[in-house]
């Protein structure tokens, strides 16, 4: 399979590890997963009282003979899984570590210094034209692209799609930034794997982040109970994000979130000791923050810690699996550990 996202070693490690839905899901085909529909199957579930209109062929005649009561035999229907892979393709996912930029004139760059006002606006704005310029696609931009969060999330998405499709489930892909930029409907055909990989490879991180809106859109679009896998750095408003995830779970979807982070985002160790004042430019909003990382590092780390803790608590409350991983952790390690834990 001509794709760089699927590493044979990774696939080999994942072999034998099924991705089983934790909740009942609805599918058109027979599969590994429980279906809300009782039908023709071998797995007996329960008896229920006969009501007029029921098909008499479902009567349990033996029970009638023993108890003189009319009961209907119900069987659990095993169905296939529809999984939606929602990959955050905002520009922040392209970050692969500290990288300096030319110091453009503020007017030329159209940037603006970070202020309390535009700090907030920067995340809400969707008209920041510089942020719309796509970055080179991972895998094409050399080693830096390979180390980006987007590339890491793409590898995870491809592996998950391969896993789902090979076990007979259908998988679809949604690439979203501040909106859904590309979608592949769920299919269970082997060619879907290639389609997903090509879609991931051809896409490039661009635009701002509007993950809650995208999730809400997705929740409204998915009619059947499905598995929704979100791969993002979740650098958005945590309350809105948790609210959108909660809507998914409330509608019966099984939601798994892979939060992909770069370790330096957590430690704020940008390797700038002794370099004095540094202007940190937001990749999505181009808002600038003039700081000496060595001085504000502790405060930033505390803020990141608070953010992550809020996500942990929210996901736990929403019954959402939050899998946080760093880009320096091998993807197979993350997947094998999670799938093993999930199958228990």
């Amino acid at each position: 399979m001509p794709t760089e996202l699927l590493d044979p070693k990774l696939l080999d490690r994942l072999r034998g590890l099924p991705l089983v839905a934790r909740r009942v899901v609805e599918g058109a085909l027979h599969g590994l997963h429980r279906s809300p529909h009782q039908g023709l199957s071998v797995e007996f579930v329960q008896h229920r009282a006969y009501t007029p209109g029921d098909d008499p062929k479902h009567l349990d005649w033996k029970a009638l003979a023993r108890n003189d009561r009319y009961v209907i035999k119900q069987y659990e229907q095993e169905t296939n899984l529809r999984a939606f892979l929602l990959l955050d393709s905002s520009r922040s996912m392209a970050w692969a570590g500290p990288q300096t930029a030319q110091v453009p004139n503020d007017k030329e760059a159209g940037g603006e210094s970070l202020s309390p006002r535009n700090l907030t606006r920067g995340f809400d704005s969707d008209a920041a034209s510089p942020s719309q310029r796509p970055l080179p696609a991972p895998g094409i931009d050399g080693e830096r692209g390979r180390n980006s969060k987007y590339h890491y999330a793409s590898v995870l998405a491809a592996a998950l799609a391969h896993l789902l499709i090979t076990q007979g489930d259908s998988a679809g892909l949604f690439l979203a930034a501040d909106r859904i930029v590309r979608q592949l409907p769920p299919r269970a055909t082997p060619s879907q794997i290639l389609s997903i990989c090509r879609a991931l490879e051809s896409a490039a991180p661009a635009g701002g982040t509007a993950l809650p809106a995208v999730i809400n859109t997705l929740a409204a679009a998915i009619k059947r109970k499905s598995l929704v896998i979100v791969l993002s750095d979740l650098f958005d408003d945590p309350e809105a994000t948790l609210g959108a995830l909660g809507r998914l779970t409330h509608t019966g979807h099984d939601v798994v979130v892979f939060q992909v982070l770069d370790r330096r985002e957590v430690t704020f160790d940008l390797g700038l000791a002794g370099r004095g004042i540094t202007i940190l430019r937001d990749m999505e909003t181009n808002a600038e923050f003039e700081a000496e990382p060595a001085l504000v590092g502790q405060l930033v780390r505390q803020e990141v810690r608070r953010f992550l803790t809020r996500l942990d608590e929210g996901c736990r409350r929403q019954n959402v699996h939050l899998v946080r991983t760093m880009t320096d952790v091998p993807p197979e390690t993350v997947l094998t550990r999670y799938l093993s834990w999930r199958t228990r």
């Binding site: 770069d262 940008l270 540094t278 937001d282």
Partner: peptide, 19 residues
């Protein structure tokens, strides 16, 4: 001064600005 691209500035809160 060095200009560095960073994934997000959302963690640079008001308190950090004051500090």
């Amino acid at each position: 001064r060095t200009v560095m691209l960073y994934s997000t500035n959302r963690f640079f809160t008001q308190s950090i600005l004051r500090s």
